[in-house]
Every structure is written in C-alpha cells, then in structure tokens.
C-alpha cells in the first residue's frame, strides 16, 4: 500500500461509497451530521446527482436529488453515486461544491468569503485559505469516521443491510445503526487511550 502511484489508484470505488454514506447519513439524520473529530454540521445533496455502475449512468436533476425515486432505484440497480453537488452549513458558514467521488476532488467551491480581492490581499488570502481549510477539516473528519466503519465487520453486517432497507424505501432501524456506530467509536477511543497510556509508560 506504500507505493505512492498505487496508493492513488487503490480502491477508487471507496470514494463512491463515502458519498453514498454521506447521503444515507444526511437523510437518516435530517442533514445533521456529527463527525467524531469536528463540530456538528448540516450537509445535504443538492441540484444534481450522478450514479453509475461501469458504463451505465443515471443523472438526477432536482432541488433534492437524493430524495428522488429514480436515485434510490439506481441504487437498487447496483449503481453508486459518482458525482453530486453538496451543501454544508457549519455554524454560520455555508459552503457549496461539486464533489467527484472517484478522486474526492472538489470543484466549483463556493466559500462564505467576506473580503474581496481588492481588499488587503494578505487578509483576503488568509480568509479564503482559512475557510477552505475549515471545510477540509470537516470532510477529513467525516472521511475518518467513514473509513472506521468501512473497515469494520459492522459495514457488511449492519450498515449495508440498513442502507439496502433505505434504498428500498423501508424504514431504517436507526437504533441498530446508531449502536454499531457508537460501538466502533468506543472501540476506537479505548484503542487510542491504550496507545497513549503505552506512550506514557514508555516515557
């Protein structure tokens, strides 16, 4: 996994699964997401969503494309989200961007910048970078949570079955899903504590 070129290309489908999970969580928790290592935020899909499986694509254009029946139908046909527009609200800050799942690339990013380029150039750059990096921090935290779930057996045993229910329009067993997430969070925290205690002992 340490060959860098190989690492870039490795399991690009995981990006589509990340977008799927964001979409699932956003609907399940009515847009309110609580990443482990970042503040709570609201996130939802907006205006367009492309789902794909090999060469077959479904494009959904709507103000809430995730809620469209054809989007769920595409999931039931084995397609996964490939690209969408996302909106994220974090405190008073609101971001909008297009996300390409295969590369995790951000395009057409709209940041809540107040300063214009004709203002102090240093201040304007700092503001833009601070806002961009804040978004990166939240996305990193969400991706970290997703990877923890994805690498655990709970993904196949609990999360995918719940996502299937959701894709079929059946009620998600929120308790089961939340319990699986909470258990993982506890395991991760105690593993970290163990590691830091070991570190202290070693010192």
């Amino acid at each position: 996994m340490k060959d860098l070129a190989e690492l870039v290309e490795l399991n690009r489908f995981v990006g589509r699964e990340f977008l799927l999970w964001l979409w699932f969580e956003s609907e399940l928790y009515e847009t309110n997401l609580r990443p482990t290592n970042a503040d709570a935020c609201a996130l939802w899909l907006e205006s367009e969503l492309t789902l794909a499986s090999e060469a077959e694509e479904t494009r959904v254009k709507s103000s809430t494309p995730g809620l469209a029946p054809e989007a769920k139908q595409a999931l039931r046909q084995g397609k996964l989200p490939k690209q969408t527009k996302l909106r994220l609200v974090w405190g008073e800050l609101e971001y909008g961007w297009k996300m390409n799942a295969d590369t995790l690339a951000i395009a057409s990013l709209k940041i809540p910048a107040q300063l214009k380029s004709q203002d102090d150039k240093y201040e304007a750059l700092y503001e833009r970078m601070r806002l961009t990096e804040s978004l990166e921090t939240i996305l990193d935290a969400l991706y970290a949570d997703f990877i923890t779930l994805r690498l655990d057996v709970a993904w196949e045993n609990v999360i995918v079955p719940q996502m299937r229910r959701w894709a079929r329009g059946q009620p998600v067993e929120e308790g089961k899903y939340a319990a699986a997430k909470a258990k993982l969070k506890r395991t991760k925290t105690s593993a970290k504590k163990g590691a830091s205690l070991e570190g202290q002992v070693a010192q």
């Binding site: 996994m1 870039v8 690009r12």
Partner: peptide, 12 residues
C-alpha cells in the same frame, strides 16, 4: 501526491 480515496485513507 494527488488526493484520492486511497491517499485520504492513508492520511488517517
């Protein structure tokens, strides 16, 4: 190194 699902996971 270009960002991708693999590199983002590795950064974790």
């Amino acid at each position: 190194l270009v960002e991708s699902p693999g590199t983002a996971a590795d950064r974790r």
